[in-house]
Every structure is written in structure tokens, then in C-alpha cells.
Amino acid sequence: MLAAAQCFAAEGNPDLGKQVYEKWCSACHAPGDAYPGTLALRAKYKGALPEALEQRSDLTPDMVKYFVRNGVTIMPFFRKTEISDVELNAIADYLTKQGTKQ
């Protein structure tokens, strides 16, 4: 029953993905030279793709969920006790819609 209530709360709050992203992700993935995740993606893609996650248009929900749960190189994985499945779905939805707004 709690999961259903959380899903309803997430659907009723379209800003949840942005809020969770800002809490857990932006410290490493915001635009600029001070963010290790952004710098790592800059080095990896060498300008072929945007380095800041919020500017990407190639992300899929499954890709976002995979990297959040499994981590990659210096990025840690995040447990369900840190980012719930509902919050993860909200982040994935937020990031996959951001790049299409450009």
C-alpha cells in the first residue's frame, strides 16, 4: 500500500525528479568546471555529446536507472534506501525530458 501511495505522490508532483536530481546528482553533474561527473563526461565524449546530464537528449530511462543503481567508474551506486524506486523513476523521467526542451 505504501508503494502505491508513493507512486501517486510522485505522479502528483512533477518536480520530484528535479528535487531528487538536485539532492543526489547535481553535486557531480551540474554544468561547469567544478563538477567531477561533468568533467568525466567531457573527457569521455570530447564534445560529441553535452557533458551536463540535464542537457543530454540521448538518455533513456533504462540507462539512467542502470547507472544510478550500478554506478560507473568514479560514480558510486545508489541503494534503494538512498534513492527509492519511485524517486529513481522520477529522476529518469526528469533527465529524459530535459534534453528535449532545448
Rank of each mutant, 00 (worst) to 15 (best):
N89R: 07
K80G: 15
A40W: 04
F78I: 03
L59W: 04
N13S: 11
A27F: 10
G47A: 02
L95G: 01
D93T: 13
M75S: 04
H29A: 05
L16R: 07
L49N: 12
K46C: 07
A34Y: 11
D33T: 11
F77N: 14
F78L: 09
A10S: 09
F78V: 07
E22K: 11
E51N: 07
V68M: 08
F67S: 04
C28F: 06
I74L: 13
N89P: 03
V72H: 13
D62R: 12
D15G: 11
D93F: 10
N13F: 07
L39C: 10
Q55D: 15
K44T: 13
L95T: 01
K65D: 02
M75G: 05
P61E: 12
A40K: 10
K18N: 10
W24R: 04
Q19L: 10
K46E: 13
V72E: 13
K65F: 02
L41E: 07
L95Q: 00
L88I: 02
L39D: 13
L49A: 12
D58Y: 08
G71T: 07
Y66W: 13
K18Y: 05
A90W: 01
W24T: 05
Q19D: 09
E54N: 06
Q19H: 01
S26N: 11
T81K: 09
L49K: 15
L95Y: 00
D15C: 08
D15T: 14
A34N: 15
P14W: 01
C28Q: 03
V64T: 01
Y94P: 04
P76V: 05
K18P: 00
Y35W: 10
D62W: 08
A52L: 04
W24S: 08
P14Q: 06
S57D: 15
A92I: 06
P76K: 11
W24A: 11
T38W: 01
A10T: 07
F67D: 00
E22G: 05
L88M: 07
E87L: 01
T60L: 06
K44C: 09
G47L: 02
Y45I: 03
Y35L: 08
L49G: 05
K44E: 13
F78W: 11
Y21G: 05
L16N: 04
G32N: 01
Q19W: 05
M63A: 15
N89Y: 05
Y21W: 09
P31E: 09
P76W: 06
F77P: 10
G71A: 02
Q55T: 08
P31H: 02
P50L: 05
L88A: 08
T73W: 14
E22W: 01
P76R: 11
V68Q: 03
V20C: 03
A30I: 01
Y66P: 00
F67M: 09
Q55Y: 11
L16I: 03
F67K: 10
D62A: 15
P36Y: 12
G37T: 01
T81S: 14
A43I: 06
E82A: 10
A90V: 06
A90F: 00
P50C: 01
G71Y: 03
I74Q: 13
E51G: 02
S26V: 13
D85M: 09
D62M: 11
R79T: 14
E22A: 11
A52S: 09
A30Y: 09
V72I: 14
A48L: 08
G47W: 02
C28K: 02
C25D: 02
P31M: 03
T38M: 04
T73D: 14
